[in-house]
């Protein structure tokens, strides 16, 4: 049982950090950049993606014996499209204002390659329980990425977070950040930061190895 617990935990945690779908695998870029001009939109998009990913992972992993190999991709896409339609109509009913701002990008969750990728790579070969943990982890990681990008862009571009003013009237907003170029630039800089962290870590590991070698020689 302990092994089983560990496996589930592992499936969950890897999506949050080590295999983060956006920062590490660079998947699902289109919705990522298009809706992150404010934090609230980013959270709504993250929630919708979470629902679709978890729902379709449950269905795919429980139906995996009955989906023929040759048509599996079309099968997955139809399952995903069904959940996206549900999410679309639910958002329309609950929060019409956010739905209007997200516009065509809710239906476009279907084309988010991260979701299809998880079905093909994980849900179709694992048990329902593991698939749910994996889906939760991946969409958690996706949501963190969406939120950090959305928050940075809203703070710099609008001087507010979740619509609450942060700086008072003397702040001159960087309008470019909420416009399309700001999305590309912010994500580029975040990825640059991740590269830098990885490089520093490599250097540190090398130094430690070097020190150990010197010690062994001495």
């Amino acid at each position: 049982m302990a092994d089983n617990q560990n496996e589930a935990y592992e499936a969950f945690i890897k999506g949050i950090w080590r295999d983060n779908p956006v920062f590490v695998q660079v998947l699902g870029m289109c919705p990522m950049l298009a809706v992150t001009n404010s934090a609230i939109n980013a959270v709504a998009m993250g929630g919708a993606t979470l629902f679709v990913l978890v729902g379709s992972s449950i269905l795919v992993s429980s139906l995996k014996q009955w989906i023929p190999k040759q048509v599996r991709i079309s099968g997955y896409i139809i399952i995903i499209a069904t959940f996206v339609t549900v999410a679309d109509y639910t958002l329309l009913a609950l929060v019409p204002k956010v739905h209007k701002e997200l516009g065509a990008f809710i239906p476009l969750i279907v084309a988010n390659c991260m979701i299809l990728g998880r079905q093909e790579a994980f849900a179709s070969r694992n048990t329902v329980r593991l698939a749910v943990m994996d889906a939760l982890g991946m969409s958690g990681g996706f949501m963190i990425a969406l939120f950090s990008l959305g928050a940075i862009r809203e703070i710099l571009g609008n001087g507010s977070l979740f619509g609450v003013d942060l700086f008072g009237e003397y702040f001159e907003p960087w309008v470019i950040m909420v416009l399309p170029p700001g999305g590309f630039l912010t994500l580029g800089l975040i990825l640059l930061f991740f590269n830098w962290v990885a490089q520093q870590k490599d250097k540190f590991v090398e130094q430690v190895a070097e020190a150990e070698r010197v010690e062994a020689d001495g």
């Binding site: 470019i176 170029p181 700001g182 590309f184 580029g188 800089l189 990825l191 590269n195």
Partner: peptide, 18 residues
Amino acid sequence: RLIQGIAMNLIIAGILSM
């Protein structure tokens, strides 16, 4: 080497978009 790869492409795309 730090900038090469996807980060640089995104920044180029940002400038193009501008």
